[in-house]
Design a protein around this nucleic acid. Sequence first.
DNA 1: CATATTATCGAACGATTTGTTCGGTAACAA
DNA 2: TTGTTACCGAACAAATCGTTCGATAATATG
Lengths: 183, 183
Amino acid sequence: MDRRMRKTRKAIFDAFIELLSEKDFANITVGEIIEKADVGRTTFYAHFETKDFLLKELCEELFCHIFDAVSEEKPEHNHIFECDSSDSVFLHLLRHLQNNDNNILKLLYGSNNELILRYFKSELLQLVASQQDLFEPKKSEKIPDSFRINHIASVFAETVRWWVDNGMKESPETIAEYFYLSV
Amino acid sequence: MDRRMRKTRKAIFDAFIELLSEKDFANITVGEIIEKADVGRTTFYAHFETKDFLLKELCEELFCHIFDAVSEEKPEHNHIFECDSSDSVFLHLLRHLQNNDNNILKLLYGSNNELILRYFKSELLQLVASQQDLFEPKKSEKIPDSFRINHIASVFAETVRWWVDNGMKESPETIAEYFYLSV
DNA sequence: CATATTATCGAACGATTTGTTCGGTAACAA
DNA sequence: TTGTTACCGAACAAATCGTTCGATAATATG
């Protein structure tokens, strides 16, 4: 990975992010990206097989790295979960989401592309599954595990969406409280 | 609205739905649609300004009509909500979703287009808002109404998604129970 | 510093897709 | 029967896609 490669890769990502603030993903063309990134057409296709792969790699850089950071943060922290815990994995995740370039989160959520949610949720599912027994099972002998895990991940994802759509005015602590009170 | 217009409109919808079972929305071209619908290119654009409008109108036909049917079903039914109610609006909605051509639901959910979820959720938001006081407020003085309504609608939408993704094996009654136990 | 590697460029390309135009045909409603 | 209008099919320019090529310049390595 050259310095050249790193630079063009960054230029393309930046241009792409800027375009995401102007229009939906579906209406962004490769031509626009390379013009704004000031990069040759050949170069773009040397880096990304297609526009969708560009989005995919951006999501990976954004989400996966955040999840990695969070999970490394508390490697062997396995105490019993408490709902109002001010030190939970999910609160830490919210903090990372807030710090890690709020704008990108907003752009991704607003780009009208289902794939983004999928990347986010697939990461969430793993996280929830790994912490599943930490949630109180409630009135739920009837509810299948599959549903329960999916439910918790969905509520978190939709909580974040609400947060982002409303301008992220609340603190991560507040959002975490909403989440725990709801789930 | 001619008989001619109704026929071509249906032909286009049918072709579109069939294509949705084969590929993502983004990869479907107008050319494919008119070929499968056996309709002239001019005719397509006389009916739908663009591919997105076709999707929009399909969603409206599917979702809005279902919601209309449900809300008309119990116009002045305002009794206090009970969690295990076997006669709630949401259970009726699930029954309609099941009857109304299960396949389309699956195709729409699988077409990788965010807009579909938006249509569905915007309808849900109205429904939930109209029935908001029927849900027990739980431990929720802290939680803003906006969040609460959004949460309930999201949980319902994601519950339906789970149902669809898993093949809709469960009965509407079972799904309604999962929903009420979770929300 | 010298050299081999390789990422980038720019131009050009055929292939698809888009959305529109036009005149002619045939189905429809009154 | 008559006037309206939806449909067709062909053709069109414009935009976009993904690829090819040879030339250039930045980079890593010895």
